[in-house]
């Protein structure tokens, strides 16, 4: 039971983090459609330190995606404060990496051109980033697909290309909104491993929205569990698992204890039951 004890000790109150915060949210609220509209986020307070892999985990419609979109500067909180490097987030930050559930690849450009899109749109020069784009594609096994149209790729390959695109500018912050939600289970496992390797190499800060418990435990250094709408933080869990994770980790007692603990939270919320 040592691991569980450790787990409960290291569950910490929102807003308290050991390192300097890169992202700092306090009382973030988001209401859609005017003062009487839908309350998507009630009051979210949490700090994220540089280099953390934070999963935002919760049921559908709990506001986890809305919170991610606020971080990306795509939505503005209706109340509260949201800081990135101590500055309020007004619109998308520079060199932000982003990936969506649908890959959002542009069908009319080759895979390579898609991966280079952030350099083109940000005005950093496509030529300068082409070697990095090819390197990223090689890292996820798409070396030979640089010059084909995305329509020639499978769903998993498309999402890999989209992840390469999100990493092109070597972002300090990578935001992913259920990037593997539309993939089959096997492809999803593989992409979890691939993403873990990419994160190990680059050590960027990641905000990862998912509703898969095992995906969250496998990838994260920390899991923020959201309660059902209106969203707020139900529990903030530090995942203390080995740094170099293999798929077999999911069969270890430590892993299962984390998963079990989170499932217990969802049972307590009444979201799942036997």
């Amino acid at each position: 039971m040592a691991a569980l004890d450790r787990l409960s000790v290291q569950s910490f109150a929102p807003g308290v983090v050991p390192e300097r915060a890169m992202i700092s949210a306090s009382g973030v609220q988001k209401r859609f459609g005017g003062p009487t509209g839908l309350l998507a986020l009630e009051s979210v307070s949490l700090d994220i330190a540089e280099g953390e892999f934070v999963s935002l985990l919760g049921p559908s419609g709990c506001g986890k995606s809305t919170f991610l979109r606020c971080l990306a500067g795509l939505e503005k909180p209706t109340a509260g404060e949201l800081l990135l490097d101590d500055k309020p987030i007004n619109g998308p930050p520079e060199k932000l990496g982003i990936a969506f559930q649908r890959d959002a690849l542009l069908d009319w450009f080759s895979v390579l051109e898609n991966v280079l899109l952030p350099a083109d749109f940000g005005g950093y020069g496509r030529k300068a980033y082409e070697p990095r784009a090819r390197e990223l594609l090689a890292m996820v096994g798409l070396k030979d697909f640089a010059d084909v149209y995305p329509s020639a790729l499978s769903g998993g390959m498309r999402q890999r290309a989209a992840i390469c695109r999100s990493l092109l500018l070597e972002p300090r912050l990578l935001l992913m909104d259920e990037p593997f939600g539309a993939l089959d289970a096997l492809t999803r496992d593989q992409l979890n491993v691939d993403l873990h390797h990419l994160w190990q190499r680059q050590r960027m800060t990641v905000g990862f929205v998912t509703h898969s418990i095992s995906e969250a435990v496998f990838l994260s250094t920390r899991i923020v569990v959201f309660s059902a709408r209106p969203g707020k933080v139900a529990e903030d869990i530090r995942v203390d698992l080995p740094d170099d994770r293999k798929l077999a980790l999911r069969d270890t007692p430590d892993f299962i204890r984390y998963a079990h603990h989170i499932r217990g939270l969802f049972e307590k919320m009444g979201l799942i039951h036997d």
Partner: peptide
Amino acid sequence: DQLDLAKVLRGS
């Protein structure tokens, strides 16, 4: 999604 992507990439 593509419009969101364009916004995040700060394209003109």
